[in-house]
Amino acid sequence: MTTTVTGLADPAELPGPAGGVRPGGRRRYTARQRRNLRLGLLFISPWILGFLVLVAYPLVYSLGISLFNHTGFRTPEWVGLGNYSRLVQDPLVAISSANTLFYAALAVPIGLVVAVVLALAMNRKVPEVGLYRTALYLPSLVPVFALSFIFIVFVNPSFGLLNQFLALFGVPETNLLGDPTSAKLIIVTMAQLGAGNAALIFLAGLNNIPDSLYEAATVDGAGTLRQFFSITLPLLSPSILFNLVTGVSGALQVFTQAYIVTGGGPNNGTLFYMFHLYNSAFSYAQLGYASALAVVLFGVGMVLALIIYGLSRRFVNYDVTG
């Protein structure tokens, strides 16, 4: 018996209405196929338009103006690759990239673990599970901007709770937003409160693992841990892949928290790449330079996504025999 657990990587494997693309390149379409092609394109036309306007045009446009010195108020001046060579030398690019990598390296893996734990918690077969689900998901509904204000208060040494809590363990009173590393850690911590969304995706994945697998494993004498590692985790791998890629993509874009909580400080310790891009574009009106930053961000994002997909071919499990 084969259960298909589908994820992202291979939509062709999804059970769908009969048909699909047959290998073998060009061939004449039947009248019905032509009609369906027209209809299908018509139905997906909002997306096609969206792709052109929201993806293709911005990419081409960004590439174009990244070659100019462009404030948006004067005639753009051709600088060739000047913006890119400035980017390489700009100390803030180095700092903001390092900050973003630091953030991603912590927030993404921690986020995955927290989300899996939350999903397992939300999946407990206890009568009051609804309460836990609500409690664990609520912070994910809080807008990041509002959560940022909450954290400003929460970590403030004089009227926040966190310092009081740390004092119980003998940590001296410190301004956690006053040090570049601890300020970044605070922002990583904040992100974990939003793990509910990723957890929901894991939860859906968990619900689709047939109970028969666990029953069988129990009968075979496999313990809870063993079951987790040999059944739950492998069967969650499509969801893990999805959350990993969206997590990395999200980490590359982290902005709002830093904008509100720390304004990029202290000592540029929370100046993330996106923040630097925003500043260049909208605080200093250097649209050409900011576009060069955007093009590089796009490139890095795509390369990372491809690497993750490449690796995932080895680890992600779509079919399971149970």
């Binding site: 403030n156 040494p157 004089s158 001296p172 009173e173 410190t174 301004n175 937003l177 006053g178």
Partner: peptide
């Protein structure tokens, strides 16, 4: 800095 954050946030 801790003094400032406490008494002069």
């Amino acid at each position: 800095d801790a003094f400032m954050a406490t008494y002069a946030p």
